[in-house]
Design a protein around this nucleic acid. Structure first.
Lengths: 243, 243
DNA sequence: ATACGGCATTGGTCATACCAAATAACACGA
DNA sequence: TCGTGTTATTTGGTATGACCAATGCCGTAT
């Protein structure tokens, strides 16, 4: 540990204690005053260390209550916003459609061939492999726009998907079901790009995400239904218990 | 900004100053003692805010020297790519137009009032002040979309502008000349949003950036005059084809 | 012109005090 | 007995003020 600054070394020490299980995930660690005494440093230093770890997503500081070890599942990515699957899909619908429209006017043979290969690959594979091909398909379209910023933004959108555990789960469950349909939609997009038809490419991409959103809404309704059902069962049990 | 903890709100304020270009990338910001006085808080609070931003990769603290704004290229996830002013403007044209269209359907009175205030402010002020109002106008529209991801993307686009010296220069020189026109364009956008007319909002925003791109291309042509003129025309065709 | 050394600046740490939020403890009334 | 509202304690949040250590500037001496 060659951390010169004390607050740094304290931060790494606390990190070690967490990793070693001394401070279990979700548990509350000693108060700042206690820790200061144990580590033999001032309370200010302890605070700075804890604040660092909070910014890194390892700790959660609750005013008046204490500081807790962040559960791994809740880990948040620095700078990436907490987004729902709906929000992300809506944003992708808007932005990727425009990216596709832009790409249609300038896309070259090389990119088109690669997209064709990816569409085939998606049809023949499944699971993670198909997912990777899907991702590459969209990124290839974005790259074909020949606009660095556009490509960067689309990449960022994908990053948001992967960094958000909740969003990823929803997407995964959706993709499983509609594999065939997804293939058709990608083929449609590819066709429009081949014809250098911007309007058609935009429409095809919008349809692609539009259908995904509808599917998600259905699931949402299903979940709502299940929750209501569960709640009614609970109510019923409570009622029976009191009788 | 409803960060209840002071150190948090200070951190976000500093972040804003960085994003707005007041603390340029790579520059050194005032000493902790000065900042404490400026913000009207204690030095400890300033330290905690700076430590947070350091952990997030936005600042670099050097003992005995000062604290510096982290260059974007050193940022965590793949740095902002070298983008030209053309690319950025084109991306903004595509994406901000869609954001405006989305916002039109759900924008509320509060946001509309704020936008009106900003349009007036832009008309009455100039230079940095007008620039800040311009930025806030676009970010307010994005926020009005009520989609976290959309807002985040628009913010990212603005960040790219500030972190790319070349792009910033081009924009500044353009904005100087077309102050009046810019006001009209913003007013048009605001009108469309008031009527909750998505299509009109999209069109108004596209015109806004479309005119900006043409202005930039004109300057580009002037500058490169003879030989580069041909290339300029090609670029122009390529960028405007999709519009 | 260069190398050395002192000095001002700036971050790093400590100690103490007080405030506000969250929580635990307790006394009270239905 | 069971809430329930009040009080006391714990815990984080902020403010001061002091001193240390690294850095960088600048004037001096070689």
């Amino acid at each position: 540990m060659k951390d010169e600054r004390l607050n740094r070394s304290v931060a790494t020490k606390i990190t070690q204690l967490i990793d070693e299980g001394i401070f279990p995930s979700g548990s509350r660690l000693p108060g700042e005053r206690d820790l200061a005494e144990q580590f033999g440093v001032s309370r200010a230093t302890i605070r700075e260390a804890e604040i660092t770890l909070q910014a890194l997503g390892r700790l959660k500081i609750k005013t008046g209550s204490g500081v807790y070890v962040m559960k791994a599942s809740d880990a948040k990515y620095g700078g990436i916003p907490a987004a729902s699957a709906f929000e992300l899909t809506q944003a992708r619908l808007l932005f990727e459609s425009e990216a596709a429209a832009l790409a249609a006017s300038v896309i070259g043979k090389e990119a088109l061939d690669h997209l064709e290969y990816l569409v085939e690959k998606m049809a023949l594979s499944s699971g993670d492999e198909a997912d990777a091909a899907d991702r590459e398909f969209h990124l290839t379209v974005a790259a074909a726009s020949e606009n660095t910023v556009v490509r960067y933004i689309i990449e960022t959108l994908w990053k948001i998907r992967n960094e958000s555990g909740a969003v990823k789960d929803v997407y995964d469950s959706e993709c499983e079901k509609y594999t065939a349909q997804r293939g058709d939609e990608h083929a449609e997009i590819l066709d429009a790009l081949r014809k250098h038809d911007s309007a058609a490419a935009r429409t095809a991409m919008r349809n692609h995400f539009g259908r995904l959103m509808e599917a998600m809404l259905e699931v949402s309704e299903e979940q709502t239904y299940n929750e209501m059902r569960k709640k009614s069962v609970e109510t019923r049990e409570r009622f029976l218990k009191s009788v």
